[in-house]
Design a protein around this nucleic acid. Sequence first.
DNA 1: TAGATTGTTAATCGATTAACAATC
DNA 2: TAGATTGTTAATCGATTAACAATC
Lengths: 205, 205
Amino acid sequence: MPRNIPRKTIQRVLLYHRYLTFLLQQGTRDISSKSLADILETKPSQVRKDLSYFGKFGTQGAGYDVLELRDRIGMIMGIQKIRKICIVGMGNLGEALAGYKGLDDLGFKVSAVFDNSKQKIGRKIKGFRCHDIGKLYQIIKKDGIELAVLTVPAAAAQEVARRLEKAGIKAILNFTPVKLTLSNKVKISNVDLAVELKTLSFFVR
Amino acid sequence: MPRNIPRKTIQRVLLYHRYLTFLLQQGTRDISSKSLADILETKPSQVRKDLSYFGKFGTQGAGYDVLELRDRIGMIMGIQKIRKICIVGMGNLGEALAGYKGLDDLGFKVSAVFDNSKQKIGRKIKGFRCHDIGKLYQIIKKDGIELAVLTVPAAAAQEVARRLEKAGIKAILNFTPVKLTLSNKVKISNVDLAVELKTLSFFVR
DNA sequence: TAGATTGTTAATCGATTAACAATC
DNA sequence: TAGATTGTTAATCGATTAACAATC
């Protein structure tokens, strides 16, 4: 149904979903685009515009039913579906993510973690048996893993990414500072800590 | 000198800087906006426009001198200056960042790490003595720490952020899912892992 | 009914891209 | 000089915001 939707819209809608869940816990039943916008520091028309990509959710004059809006967004975003992910590269960051309990609540199941170091392969890291990165293909295939978190050193990133694609990975959360070149079937999000920090650094200058 | 520059421009210029450094190591001496754009998957006019916020760097007909461009960008971005940072919240992520060797090379010196748990206060974590979060103010003041990385649980985020501001922190890299409300003197970058993962999840749906 | 608020269209704003004169 | 490529202005594109008819 939806045309091509701006990534920013998707991200904001996910924020709406998160906040609606919070409202629900508080016992709030109804909300207007105005109040939603105020909290998330945006405009009511932005909220309505974002939602309009996906359908009609409100009642004129009355606003939105928190539970209904939350659940329908959840459906559309596929939020309930549990996704199998793998973490590739068990350095500081990879290990931290493996140990991050929040992933479960978000519906991500860590199905495998990989590294190439002899010291790590076969050992348990944060409760996950660490696999040889050489077995990427067979394990991803066998387990039907959809998403990968890439936390390998920069020098290995492009090569590993290609192998992830070959293995059928559909999306990569890329923590390396490398601009990955893959077929555009694979969705990529980049988190570039160096650039984030340096950007702040610039503003403080 | 520079008017108000889009954050995206700053981030791209930082990418140019990183790539120019790489070119330098390779021994490449000259480059055009065209080649730079190709690598970074943008347009030559984008590169020139971005640079034009900061001055003139090239020679008509000949392009840019890699070393000169790199160094001048470095100057403007304040890239050489060493910044003192602190990490607040020694959970999985905080600990990983404390252990991340890359920070040094980026010019960030971890001057303090904080947590509120009795188990962690006073102990060494990744080589850093963990301080009581209650001492945020005095330690930040005393050491002249400018930047903070916020990796506390969501419930504590807003309150801790306010105390960071009071202590004189100028910029926060916020890993919590909370929209921080502070005076706009404090620069904030948000890294929202949940939203990043869920966004990918949506595209894979 | 009167007041409120939606969904959608139109206007505005800002960022990206193209065009081109300047010039090495 | 001819060719290349800059820096900058103008055009285009896309996203945000405002406006408003529809209607609960």
